[in-house]
């Protein structure tokens, strides 16, 4: 695939799917303030994905609604981390923390991308992602230093989620060209920055951080290999849209 398309699809699909998942917290949060916070982040992520699909549209791909609402799982390029069900709050929070640190750093790097339309979008998005990371940090520190029960839960979630989080940085065949053309600094570089960034926050908690780079990453998402959870999510998302594909909704 063309390196620009390859990169944009990965970015957009990650944002769409995690935005969708975050929106599932409506009515289920541990406190109302977290229902509201996850909804805000979900709205941001949906908006981010729309901007990225719009960049794809400008490059000749289909309309954002068509791309988002009519593809099936094997055609999605998101990492597996974002498609996992929301589970309990400790998992959703840990995923949010690990993912949004990567996203913030990713879009900070993309702000100087050689592809100017993407750089412009990135300069806007990074400002929003900063708040996502701040929100995650606040809660990780709070729960990661609270009761034994909370620390134990957060530790379990961290151990479970880290291998999936490493899948964020899965490279595609276009990686060398993406880097050489100045589109993006590349996944290895991003992973290094990410590790430093999350480690600083986790050091302020009672959580034990394993040797992250020694873990086996959960890969495949960037090539359309997904968990059994993605297709049902997509079916649900497209349930109304597909009732009458000729209609304007």
């Amino acid at each position: 695939m063309n390196p620009t398309l390859d990169l944009l699809y990965r970015l957009a699909d990650d944002q769409l799917i995690l935005g969708h998942r975050n929106s599932e917290w409506n009515g289920l949060g541990p406190i109302l303030e977290e229902d509201i916070a996850f909804s805000s982040m979900a709205q941001d992520k949906l908006g981010h994905s729309l901007q990225l699909y719009s960049l794809l549209r400008a490059l000749g791909e289909a309309e954002p609604d068509t791309v988002a609402f009519t593809r099936n799982a094997p055609q999605f390029h998101c990492c597996q981390l974002v498609e996992l069900p929301i589970g309990e709050y400790d998992f959703s929070l840990t995923r949010h923390f690990l993912f949004d640190h990567a996203e913030l750093l990713r879009f900070e790097a993309l702000a100087t991308s050689s592809y100017e339309p993407l750089a412009q979008v990135a300069r806007k998005l990074r400002g929003e992602l900063k708040y996502h990371a701040l929100h995650a940090n606040t809660w990780m520190k709070r729960l990661g230093t609270a009761t034994d029960e909370a620390i134990e839960r957060m530790q379990r979630s961290l151990d479970f989620t880290l291998p999936y989080a490493l899948g964020i940085f899965e490279k595609t065949d276009a990686e060398a060209e993406i880097i050489s053309s100045g589109l993006f600094v590349g996944e290895d570089e991003l992973r290094g920055r990410w590790l430093e960034s999350i480690s600083k926050v986790l050091a302020q908690t009672a959580l034990e951080v394993p040797d992250v780079l020694a873990l086996t990453p959960v890969m495949g998402g960037r090539y359309g290999q997904h968990t059994e959870h993605l297709q049902p999510l997509l079916d649900e998302m497209a349930e109304v849209f597909r009732l009458d594909p000729t209609a304007d909704w």
Partner: peptide
């Protein structure tokens, strides 16, 4: 499901 969070706070 969220009781542990409120206890932690």
């Amino acid at each position: 499901n969220g009781a542990w969070v409120r206890r932690a706070l």
